[in-house]
Simulated assay, not measured.
Amino acid sequence: MGTARRLLDADTGEIVPYAPYAFSGRHTQVDKARVEAITESRAFTPSQKFLVLWWIGVSPEGMEPLKATGADIGQRVGMSTDAVGKINRKLVKHRILIVRGRIGNYKFYRISPYIAFHGTGIEQREAIKTCNPPDIPGFDESTPARWEAK
């Protein structure tokens, strides 16, 4: 049995108190600049932006797809199956959603790891190697999110 590892302050050598997250559920790393660009873009409708947010919240850990049909998703978010399909296709066209599996003609999706990822930083670096960056109209990768603290 190993001893418990403690984090020490680099300057004082004192033990840094550990505090667990006070939030429920899973946590996801999100690229704030890309989400800001999506939500401010005139190229996406409010329903499309809403579904991006939903995909950020429901995409499984790692690169696993969400195994749900358009009808399942529509029921969960209050949209028709056709509306969900149309929005998902547009988000795939912009590489905001990526296809990660299929059964017959039905495709399974997840949010791009460039936008949000549930896993370690190393896992996220490996995940982005498997797909191209999203095409977000007006997004400039060299420009940080507008509302970041300076």
Rank of each mutant, 00 (worst) to 15 (best):
M1E: 10
K107P: 00
A10E: 10
E64S: 14
A149P: 02
K150Q: 07
D140Q: 07
R76P: 02
P144T: 01
E14N: 10
E126Q: 05
G119F: 03
Q124L: 12
V58K: 11
N132E: 15
F139T: 02
T81D: 13
E123I: 01
T143V: 15
F117R: 08
W147P: 00
S80G: 14
A116G: 10
A68P: 05
E126V: 00
I56S: 09
K107Q: 11
M63V: 15
S24V: 12
A127L: 06
E123M: 08
L51T: 08
Y106L: 05
E123D: 11
A43H: 08
T69R: 06
R110V: 04
K129T: 12
H27A: 15
I96P: 03
P20S: 13
G85Y: 01
I87N: 11
G74S: 08
N132M: 14
I73F: 09
F50S: 12
D9G: 00
V99F: 08
I87C: 03
E14P: 00
A116V: 04
K129S: 09
A127I: 07
I128W: 01
Q29A: 14
T130E: 14
R100Q: 12
P137E: 04
R26L: 12
S80N: 09
V35K: 13
G78R: 08
L97V: 07
G138V: 02
S112C: 03
G85A: 08
Y114D: 02
K90C: 04
I73G: 04
